[in-house]
Design a protein around this nucleic acid. Structure first.
Lengths: 337, 337
DNA sequence: GTGAAAGCGCTAACAC
DNA sequence: GTGTTAGCGCTTTCAC
């Protein structure tokens, strides 16, 4: 299966009876060729099925037509396909489809700071980094290299950085809390993850503000993302011991599923005694009994926005950023009273 | 945001006080350098944080550390993110995770035959092509270029080609039919898609054989994949008109959801009068009432197998192929009698 | 053992 | 208007 090389610019030049420069210029709309030559060269190239080699072209630092995607939350998890968690797959799917629609390819790249670094990594035109955390080394690396990037979720601790898009986490959090309040909840516990990303931080922030406004004591629990369903189940014990709240708001779907299972196992009636809701819809949330009310992210709009911004950056244009998209709230049995 | 170039081989050579060649050889275990020089050069390179530029390297046709993924079924659909269809997302997620685990990056590439072809497309080390159909032009293109590739699903009409992996479709089909028979079905209709890929063809083949063995008249319906749920609903009318079978086996999840909805709307009781089952689990299947029994593909094992084969091909080793993985059958309400 | 030098395919100064 | 030429960063002969 020897790799045959494709038709090169040289072949086209020879065939068209011109220099390689002429070909390069004709095909890239550069230089000052006569319309006739240009047209002729184009015809020949087309007819020969010529396609410029991206590598050689990239060597001269022209765009590659491909952007990278780094999933920081999965890097952190150390597992790129956690069972039942479909937010990332959905995001990858959406981002890929949006990229393809814009004529860009999407390359999935692992943690850029841990060797071996994928060879092409620093040759891509730009990057989407999802859920960067405080002082994210991947972001630092891109910054260092001067590679354009956008982030899915505001990079925490960097108020000056605007090239991000995400669902409006603050609005989402308020939506959920209002829903719980409307269903009669007075005391709400928040279960967040431990990654210091905007997702965790902004929900927490809104939650604390909400508690303060109402004069209720915040009940904040931190559970590592990787603790999964089991972690949630275990946490249910603590919730009971600390005194049952009217509702539990778990940011991750697996925690919510675990917490609900743990509560039910301890005889707590959901939603009658305590409601459960999650900030991130997942198979687990949908398949729990009762089904768990959830925020459904908006990967399509978010990845479209991110690619818009990224394309502007790559082209050196000012970008319309940040951009907020809207998550949908899906009320289900776990909060239906 | 000027792109800063990284440290080049030249920098390392100068710093180590050797030639460029020496650096190249030391870092690639080529040539005949003394152990001492080799070690010294390596130390300097490491200390400088040198990383070879993949582009320049690729120009000389060495591996890029990246493989492409082409989703033929989505190319055909013309939509890279059809709502509720998660098999592809799951496959992408699984393939990405398996690739990353092997130190490879995964690049999602659209139809390689429709311009504009993504620039890097022909520079990748190899390809995974999902669900190629008869005389697939993408496959032809890769073949032409001598680029190693594997297919998810046997390429139909090419018995000599072995570099593929997939769930064992024939076994899956038998599993489903046996399940239906066990639940009392005598007459079963098969609803397949129109893409001439192995998935459609092999299920059909087993189905026809099964009918023949039992002396029952086959009832075969073809429905374009893109007809979606609505197509299924419409088909339900035909099923009723043609005389209700005891069970309907729809290969795609959306067709199954539509068929069941259409049947129920016409007063047919599922599963009592007619059972419904699908060959491809999806959100639609799970969320239908009753939930639809389904085959759940095995993207994790399948993509792992594909990457094993692909890595062998790239390395020029003989590959252990084809490889069959096992789908799981999920019995649900739609076949529970 | 080591290094000079010739490309890989392309782009962009700069001559002509 | 058009072509010559010098690289981009790297690998790989092939002299020394």
């Amino acid at each position: 299966m020897a790799r045959t090389r494709g038709i090169t610019i040289k072949d086209v030049a020879r065939r068209a009876g011109v220099s390689i420069t002429a070909v390069s210029h004709a095909l890239n709309d550069k230089g000052t060729l006569s319309a006739a030559t240009r047209e002729h060269i184009r015809a020949v190239a087309e007819q020969m099925g010529y396609e410029a080699d991206a590598l050689a072209r990239g060597l001269r630092r022209s765009p590659m037509g491909a952007v990278g995607l780094v999933l920081r939350s999965l890097d952190a998890l150390g597992d790129y396909a956690p069972a039942g968690v479909d937010v990332f797959e959905r995001f990858v799917g959406a981002a890929a489809s949006q990229a393809l629609a814009r004529g860009l390819s999407l390359m999935l790249v692992p943690d850029l700071t841990r060797p071996p670094v994928p060879p092409l990594a620093f040759s891509l035109d730009g990057y989407i980094v999802t859920n960067p955390h405080v002082d994210d080394p991947v972001v630092a690396r891109l910054e260092e290299r001067g590679i354009p990037y956008v982030t899915y979720g505001r990079p925490p601790g960097r108020p000056e950085f605007t090239h991000w898009a995400s669902e409006d986490d603050r609005a989402s959090a308020r939506l959920v809390l209002a829903h719980l309040e409307g269903a009669g909840a007075r005391s709400v516990a928040l279960v967040r993850g431990t990654d210091p990303n905007a997702w965790n931080l902004e929900h927490q922030d809104v939650y604390l503000g909400w508690c303060e406004e109402r004069g209720s004591t915040p009940r904040l629990y931190e559970l590592p993302e990787r603790a999964g369903v089991e972690g949630g189940t275990a946490l249910a014990g603590r919730l009971v011991d600390d005194g049952l709240p009217d509702a539990v708001f778990c940011l991750t779907g697996r925690h919510a599923a675990g917490v609900q299972r743990g509560l039910v196992a301890r005889g707590v009636r959901v939603p009658e005694r305590t409601m459960v809701v999650t900030g991130s819809d997942s198979e687990h949330a949908r398949n729990s009994r009762p089904a768990i009310s959830a925020l459904e992210l908006n990967p399509v709009d978010s990845s479209a926005a991110l690619l818009d911004i990224l394309q502007s950056l790559i082209a050196g244009r000012p970008a319309d950023a940040p951009r907020l998209t809207r998550a949908r709230f899906r009320p289900r049995g776990s909060t239906r009273r």
